[in-house]
Design a protein around this nucleic acid. Sequence first.
RNA 1: GCGAGCGUGGCGGAAACGGCAGACGCGCUGGGUUUAGGUCCCAGUGGGGUUCACACCCCGUGGGGGUUCAAGUCCCCCCGCUCGCACCA
Length: 838
Amino acid sequence: MTEDGPERYDPLAIEPSIAQRWYEQRTYSLRPPAGEPNDEQDVERFYALTMFPYPSGDLHMGHAEIFTIHDALVRHLRMTGRRVLNPIGWDAFGLPAENAARNRGADPKAWTYANIEEQRSTIVRLGYSFDWETVLYTCDPSYYRWTQWLFLELYDAGLAYRREALVNWDPVDQTVLANEQVVDGRGERSGAVVQRVPRTQWFFRITDYADELLEGLDDIDWPERVKNSQRAWIGRSEGAEITFKTAGDGDQPADEILVYTTRPDTIFGATYFVFAPEHPIVTERMEGDEDYAAFLEEVSHRSEIERQSGEGGGKRGYRLPFRVVNPFTNEEIPAFAADYVLMDYGTGAIMAVPVGDQRDFEFARQQGLEIRVIIHPTGPDGELLEELDADTMTEAYTGPGVMVNSGAYDGLPWDEAKERIIADVESKGWGTERVNTRLRDWLVSRQRSWGPPIPIVHCVECGEVPVPLEQLPVELPDDLDFQVQGSPLDQHPTWKHEADCPQCGDPRATRDIDTLDTFVDSSWYFLRYLSPEAEDRAWPPDAANRWLPVDQYTGGVEHAVLHLLYSRFVVKAMRDRGHLRADEPFQALLNQGQVIMDGASMSKSKGNLVVPGEVYDTYGADTLRGTMLFASAPEDDIDWADVSPTGMYKWLSRVWRLTIAEVDGATGAGPAVSEVVATALRRATAEAIVGASQDYDARKYNTAIAKLMTLTNAVLDATRGGESGPPVREALEALLTLLAPVCPFVTDELWQRLGHEGSVHDQSWPVADTSLLVQDEVQMVVQVNGKVRGRITIATDAAQSAVEAAARANEAVAGHLEGEVLKVIVIPNKLVNFVVRD
RNA sequence: GCGAGCGUGGCGGAAACGGCAGACGCGCUGGGUUUAGGUCCCAGUGGGGUUCACACCCCGUGGGGGUUCAAGUCCCCCCGCUCGCACCA
């Protein structure tokens, strides 16, 4: 460092104290103490939400990326006059705390809050302008009391219920999981192969809202791929339920079996019948059959992975000792139990049509079953393309066609046959048209102990009884032993016995020992932010009606189905209970890209972990923020190996030097900029304001920063001889306000160095003097046959004839105009193109 | 297998509407300042050809075809990569 040169840019000297001041003074709070968000009527409100962090350690680069994008958005909106609600909190319940307790003997609460404190100080240090009055922690009784209330609301509405079902059991995390938490047959968190086991568990009836969850996607501004993921997950299909009967065989009465099919038109091709192995009709009829019991045992032990990969023999089937009657043909067809039919989709039984379904086709070939052709392929105009041959076909035919061997329906196009058959099924009382979804009810109970206890008491006399609202919260004991086998809450010596039945007072009643999934906590936190300290209600309905839906939600794409689908369900259910009016929680969604390293995700085990602290301890938070936003568009991944914090640091240093020089020059009366330079600089300033504003509106922070760099270069050019003066000052002030959302510290500091009283963040967004952008002359490109051959400078909006004449007069162009000119195209103020015969 | 998205210099990335491809930055090369290194400042930087030089010419946005006066951008086919879903009847 030079001893007596101008003061250099030293972010570490200015950032921490500003950060601390913003935090302590609650600078960005919208809320008077202990109230709801300040809510004057005549303001434009904006609810900006970013996914709250999970406190499993300090903040990582991914958090810094999301928060930086979010904060630039929020600070920009504030400067454009919006009243922005920008809350923060912690998703503080969950398994990592419990694992730390089990493995290291830590107290989960202390562990969680220590991590929160570490994350909070990093968030403050990075200058994110959250409203520190609204902080919430999902593990705090003042929060989970209302999570329990939410459960009871759903229970009261019939949307929360307990039943036995085949569920996903994670043997490592020792708990059941929701379908959404099982990826490729493995637990999303633990990576363990999940087992399908029967258990009595709590569910939310999300399937009641399947249609609305699907249709609502059309009206929200989310990335198409997230909407597609949700559409696929909901998996709506249209078809029919049709009743089949088992063939009578004397002493045993015929059973009725419902099947679901999307292709009722192919019913004449049903040559066999398949039950899910656990189907009740089968288990009842096969009771005591050791052979079948062995098959059931074998199938239940095959993991999802084996079943899907086709390893270990593909589909497993068991020929049942009875037959089933096809209602349309009265034909008796063989019946199987097979693992390719799932008990929990449709009705758990299918009519198998090998000619029209690839799975049935494969199974039929494997078992040597008949493949009956009932359709011939047709083209776009209904013309016959070929005739299928059961002996030679190698795969099922699923395209359009015309019916054959289908009784009265022969000769009909398939879609018409489908309609007629459904109509006939209904008129004969054999079944109904039916819509089905892949979506199952949401399994919410967990055999874990760092979560909200389910507010239900089990009484020998009254059954399951909800805990009365005035007794909420059902608090977790703080002396759980996490070293025990199984659920610590269950093993606690007294906790579950502390409750008497709320209905009959029976002291033998016990608490439900399961807790709610963390996704229940996070499915409504954006509502609690509206009044985190309210003790008499979860949220005020009028505040919810004013602020919801969230105007902009930012966060990772990994929540495409889980959190984002659950939150949508909760909002719709709460709307129907009269607690709010919004149909959707999040109107717009932005998925930021990942921060990776050398093409791979960062992790300690890979040894490529870069943490935010390493960067801000060297270059400061402004450099970290600027680097992330300049590296790429918000949606794109950033490879940390490709980015250069030094480049950003050098630029900010230059901005610093230029501003300090202007301050010094103004007081020291250096030379003033010339008139010509002043005009050019003012135009550069106006261009930067216009360009950067458009980029901010489109959230293209990378190009906004590029335009600010261009303005910096213009200032540099103008002040090369030590000049200063109003045009320089205006350029720098515009630069600082336009940069403020990205680099809040250095801009605030320099703003004050320029002599301003208040904060740069309280300035309104600059407006350009657009008259400066109008120029007398423009440069136009001259092309011959589409190739650039020269340029002309000509009056703005010059007449076509004048433009053409000037272009012809251009020496470089003239040499290429020897052939016959067939056509001249003039794009005003841009380009002339001569079309010449070669 | 199905669905969606993406392919632009050595690198990250720019180019509403079809109208100068490569903004801005990194890196690199050369020069200046400095005792030196770093910092800072200046110039150059898609590939090829050609010229003493100013210039000039050709090629170029994964590959091939098409529409157009004009294509990174629109249409068709192919290749590659990434991400979802995946026995859902």
